[in-house]
Amino acid sequence: MATKDKKNEIIAAPVIEEDESKVRFHTITIDGDKYRTLFTESYKRRKNWEKPNEKKIFSEIPGTIIKIHVTEGQEVNEGDLMIVIEAMKMKNKLIFPIGGVVKKIYISENEKIPKRHLMLELE
C-alpha cells in the first residue's frame, strides 16, 4: 500500500510481514540511478572481489603438510619444490608458481590445512 507525503508524491510504505522496525532499506545503484530497496540473503553474503596477489600462495586443496622444502629468507626460482601436501590420499608436490624471496611461512609440518589457506608469502 502506498501513502502520500507532504509533497503529495506517492511514497511506498514498507509492506513487509516482518516487524517493521527491523526493516532497513538500502540503496542500490544501477546505471547511475539510486533505488531504495531491501537486500536478499545471498546478496548480503556476496564476497567482494579482490585482485589475486600472486605473492601470497594459498592452498588449492585441503590436506596435511608433509614437508616444507624452504625456509624464510630463502631465494627461490619458479618451479622450485615448495612443499609436499597429502590430500585426497595422495602426496602432492607443490612448486613455486613464481620466483622470489620467501618472506613468511604460515604453515608447519604435520599441520592440517583447509582449502584457500594462506601458506606462504614472497617478498
Binding site: 502506498a2 508524491e9 511514497i11 511506498a12 540511478d33
Partner: peptide, 9 residues
C-alpha cells in the same frame, strides 16, 4: 509509487 526509485511489494 510514482517515483521509479521507490520500492513496493
Amino acid at each position: 509509487p510514482g517515483n521509479p526509485k521507490e520500492p513496493y511489494d
